[in-house]
């Protein structure tokens, strides 16, 4: 058996993909990691103490896993959902009632979204409590905060898409809060300094208008499905890479 495995892993097909054969020593094992696009985010070595579950609770890992799950189920939902005012709600209902496996896909997407918000926040809490933001990890903390904001924005933009009363009013309230920020919101302090009015403030930019309507729906859809995930993927790449560069996974000193 091991002979066949060895033949495959030393064969040309294997090598064309993974570029190196079976690692036989510490150096060649390092090469495997370094020479593979997917694996090179991974540290070549993990300290034994880094495997201790109760130190990190794998919160970052769970967040990343949920992000992948959300991407897969989200793509599935995009096949059936049309972000048009007249259709959005019924499409959401149809996904639940008639699309094969649609109910479970939507449920997974919804629960995973809630879960990701929770795990990302807990992740940040853990990083703060273990002091893992300290140099040399101070830049990764900043990236992490950006990812937290992105997670919340993804959750917020996705909330509008079912286009029901809950969605409508939640987004109305949420964007009115945006309208109350200083300078950039027409309801906030110092807005007159920047000449910000109801039709050119940050809420207007979010909604594409002064109230939740078709423009808001398409904006939130595009942000939710394209813009925000793209930025999140890039930042997550940097985040993971920096974890490795800054000394690997946090562990008890």
């Amino acid at each position: 058996m091991s002979g066949i495995g060895e033949r495959i892993r030393n064969g040309q097909l294997w090598k064309s993909i993974f570029r190196v054969g079976i690692p036989s020593d510490r150096r060649s094992r390092l090469q495997v990691i370094l020479h593979n696009f997917f694996l090179h985010l991974h540290p070549t070595r993990v300290a034994r103490s880094g495997l201790k579950m109760t130190y990190t609770f794998c919160l970052g890992g769970i967040s990343a896993f949920l992000f992948i799950l959300l991407t897969i189920t989200g793509v599935f939902l995009m096949f059936y959902y049309v972000p048009e005012v007249g259709r959005a709600y019924s499409d959401m209902k149809d996904i639940g009632f008639v699309v094969p496996f649609g109910r479970v896909m939507r449920a997974l997407h919804r629960w995973a979204a809630h879960g990701m918000v929770i795990t990302v926040i807990l992740h940040m809490l853990r990083v703060a409590l273990t002091g893992s933001y300290k140099p040399p990890r101070e830049f990764n903390w900043v990236i992490g905060v950006s990812l937290l904001v992105l997670t919340l924005l993804l959750s917020f933009t996705g909330y509008l898409l079912p286009w029901d009363q809950l969605a409508f009013w939640a987004i109305t309230v949420g964007t009115n809060m945006a309208a109350a920020v200083p300078v950039a919101g027409h309801d906030g302090p110092f807005h007159e300094v920047a000449g910000v009015a109801v039709d050119n403030d940050v809420r207007y930019a979010l909604l594409g208008g002064i109230e939740v309507g078709p423009n808001a729906l398409i904006r939130f859809y595009v942000l939710h499905c394209v813009a925000l995930p793209l930025i999140a993927v890039v930042l997550m790449g940097v985040h993971f890479w920096r974890v490795r560069k800054d000394g690997g996974i946090s562990r008890p000193l």
Partner: peptide, 17 residues
């Protein structure tokens, strides 16, 4: 009732909201 639904209670619209 809720025409799109395919389960009894949901279809009869005898569900919340």
């Amino acid at each position: 009732g809720q025409g799109r639904a395919t389960t009894t209670q949901a279809a009869h619209g005898e569900v919340a909201h």
